[in-house]
Design a binder for these strands. Structure first.
Lengths: 239, 239
DNA sequence: CGCCCGCTTGACACGAATCAAAAAGCGTGG
DNA sequence: CCACGCTTTTTGATTCGTGTCAAGCGGGCG
């Protein structure tokens, strides 16, 4: 196995904390300034461009947000650059929970994303519900990474994302769902413990098998969700 | 990949609920009865033999326990029998949290284990602390399963278990720690997303490299914890 | 003592990673 | 509008790590 020694800072394009500071960063690089100007604030909602770092692993504990629109990826990175995405968070879900006094993971936006800061602290009940959900998702990912094959992982991922980002609009025949795929192939690979090439090959195979369809790489339709679910759980081997 | 279709029930030797029911199960199989007789109750502590199922995935929500002595494994099983151990829980830690109205995972003892039922419900603070710890451990396992090599996984596991089961007694030179290894090679494989053979080979390699030692397969000494930690994090490749 | 089960070791197979290169998008500027 | 350069995705050839299959080994328990 081979990994470039790629410092975290290089992957970072914009940090939310910079945006929040307003005038304090005039000396920033052109790219940072340009992205920062895209920020729109209205009624305490921050509209963030893709690839904005919301907070960074190892830094002091960050505030919590609710994702209103778009998608946030939380991830951890090994010292040699290997990255593991912990979760992909879609509309309605919370980011920044379960941190101690230091962030245990990073968070970045995968598309144009609207975040709502959580004003008053959550009730104990809400917090416990949210933590339970995070735990359940984390355990499902554990099973996926520990025991599933590559096609099973990709099928599982697509079903998960369909649940988070799929429109209830189903003008399509049967249970078909179409949705915007926020993560790139690389993001999916880092989530599923695979490589870009393997993810791409699985997409191709699923498409040829008639289970999914896509014209652009970031817009996917699940043509046979039930069949896909059987692939995801290992009940059917795919081709 | 090939898996025997092995129903969950076959793996189960004793269920805690049976033990608690006292006389209600005279018709049980001889093995179950024999194990059940080993039960000792004193002051609300249950002393359970190895391979006792504390609760089972899919069944209605079980009570919560604190591990006093011994070790409990929590796991999920795929329909075709593939098993993933979610966590190994040692003394002082809690089992049975984060369940909805149905158990999302099973729990079984790996050695002679003393469990203490949690009498009054936990305070919100304690619950949140416990959930946060579970989440942190689950995320560490995610990184391990998604991005670490087999030797890195085994090294990480040994360090984790040393932390949970290692005696503070260090009559040994340097930072060496000896502890009882509750999980079998198969358990470790199911925890680390590997096979028995691979786990065994990694043990052999670590032993030959002088990082660990063991006479019996269930009693391990970490000879070079710092070096082992570097292997675990991928900073050093091991041979 | 001898069976049984867990552990170890070896030979081989296979799935996913790696390396390489072409194809497809996509923003930029002429 | 198209040409250009860069990035992402796809596809192909090959390698490599871990899984699979098989056989021995050893310790505990009946």
């Amino acid at each position: 196995m081979h990994f470039d020694a790629c410092p975290v800072a290089i992957r970072m394009s914009v940090m939310l904390s910079m945006l929040a500071d307003g005038e304090a960063h005039k000396a920033s690089s052109p790219a940072v300034v340009r992205n920062a100007l895209q920020r729109v604030r209205s009624e305490d909602h921050a509209l963030l461009p893709p690839r904005t770092t919301v907070f960074l692993e190892g830094f002091s504990r960050s505030p919590q947000y609710r994702v209103v629109d778009g998608c946030v990826a939380t991830s951890q990175t090994l010292s040699d650059g290997r990255r593991q995405i912990i979760d992909l968070v879609g509309p309605g879900r919370l980011v920044g929970l379960g941190l101690g006094d230091r962030n245990r993971y990073s968070a970045e936006t995968l598309g144009l994303t609207r975040l709502e800061p959580i004003a008053e602290p959550l009730s104990h009940g809400d917090l416990e519900t949210a933590l339970n959900e995070m735990l359940a998702r984390s355990q499902a990912l554990t099973m996926l990474l520990g025991r599933k094959t590559a096609p099973e992982r990709v099928a599982s991922a697509l079903l998960d994302l369909a649940g988070q980002f799929g429109r209830p609009a189903r003008q399509q025949k049967r249970g078909a769902v179409t949705f915007h795929l926020f993560p790139t192939r690389t993001d999916l690979a880092d989530w599923l413990g695979l490589t870009v090439e393997t993810v791409s090959r699985c997409f191709t195979r699923l498409k040829k098998a008639g289970l999914i369809d896509f014209q652009h790489s970031d817009r996917v339709t699940l043509l046979e969700p039930l069949h896909l679910a059987r692939v995801a759980s290992g009940d059917r081997p795919l081709s």
